[in-house]
Simulated assay, not measured.
Amino acid sequence: MLAPSQAVAPVVDRPPPPPLLASNSLFLDFDGTLVELAERPDGVIVGADLLALLDRLMTALDGRLAIVSGRSIRQLDALLGPAAAAITLAGSHGAERRTPTEGYVAADGAASLHDVAQRFEAFAEAHPGVIVEVKSHGVALHYRLAPEREPAALGLAARIAADAGLILQHGKMMAEARVAGDKGAALAALMQLPGFAGSTPFFCGDDVTDEDGFIAARALGGGGILIGDPRDTAASWRLPGVAALHRWLTTSLSELL
């Protein structure tokens, strides 16, 4: 039994968020937030009902909606289809973005990413179940289908990221070597644009990669909404999962329209 000084402090849960207001802006992570996590990155399906929900939110918030994802914009375009053209997107953890007013803006790509991808692919070939995801500004190593490979995968990713001078990004059953950038900086940059400026931001996300977004939203007078189980977080509110987020967004729309 632990002594009082050794006791682990319990995680403090967060309440559900209040409904969106017309003065809010909405920033949404993608995997694990807007859509359920899939065993493979290419296994995600975006249904017509979700696309319709996003379209209605765009109208209700006068365009102040953005998807801020670890996926590249090219990947988001493929998943969202024609609807992506009207939505503000920040991809690759904020290293690239595309808005209706600015067009496409990106950080310099790292020449070392090709070598990173080759080394990750060699590891995946030797360890069945490990999947490599090549993005515009990073390469991710997924071990969801081979959880026993976690120590080896994380060790390899750390070494390769250090060798290449890249950021090592941990996520849910994955590690990514990527170009510098964070979701909080992406939110802050988008909040300076005429369409978003002066609004109060809500940032919704499920992973540790979303913590920077929660912090940035709170600094601008809003807050973060954690999607998933309780944990230590900078988010102000929590919803238990993707379906709960969809219900909250639908309820908010009834207040907004």
Score class of each variant (00 low, 15 high):
151 P>Q: 02
177 A>T: 01
18 P>H: 07
186 A>L: 05
256 L>N: 02
205 G>Y: 00
126 A>D: 11
245 L>A: 03
200 T>C: 14
173 M>P: 04
161 A>N: 08
35 V>R: 03
1 M>V: 12
197 A>I: 13
219 A>I: 07
47 G>W: 10
256 L>W: 03
148 E>K: 06
169 Q>S: 12
163 D>T: 11
27 F>Q: 11
79 L>F: 15
227 I>G: 00
184 G>S: 05
65 L>T: 10
225 I>E: 00
131 I>C: 08
205 G>Q: 05
187 L>R: 11
129 G>W: 03
12 V>D: 06
94 G>K: 12
209 T>Q: 05
201 P>C: 11
77 D>C: 11
94 G>P: 12
152 A>P: 00
121 E>G: 06
52 A>G: 13
121 E>C: 08
4 P>G: 09
6 Q>T: 09
27 F>R: 10
70 G>K: 02
129 G>L: 05
233 T>L: 07
209 T>H: 01
126 A>T: 05
38 A>G: 15
20 L>R: 00
1 M>G: 13
235 A>V: 11
75 Q>G: 08
173 M>W: 03
101 T>C: 14
157 A>N: 03
55 D>Q: 14
158 A>N: 02
86 A>N: 13
196 F>E: 13
188 A>P: 06
157 A>G: 13
200 T>K: 14
40 R>E: 13
72 S>Y: 06
37 L>N: 14
96 E>N: 09
246 H>C: 05
112 S>P: 08
72 S>K: 03
78 A>S: 15
61 L>R: 00
166 L>W: 04
251 T>Y: 05
184 G>E: 03
240 P>D: 09
151 P>N: 04
55 D>W: 08
9 A>G: 02
32 G>V: 11
44 V>G: 06
113 L>T: 06
60 A>T: 03
212 D>M: 08
50 L>C: 12
75 Q>N: 14
186 A>C: 10
83 A>N: 04
93 H>E: 01
170 H>S: 11
45 I>A: 15
142 H>C: 04
183 K>T: 03
176 E>M: 10
176 E>S: 04
135 K>W: 04
59 T>D: 14
103 G>Q: 15
148 E>C: 01
7 A>W: 12
30 F>A: 00
80 L>F: 15
73 I>G: 05
121 E>H: 07
63 G>F: 02
162 A>F: 05
38 A>I: 07
3 A>I: 04
155 G>C: 02
255 E>L: 09
255 E>T: 12
34 L>P: 00
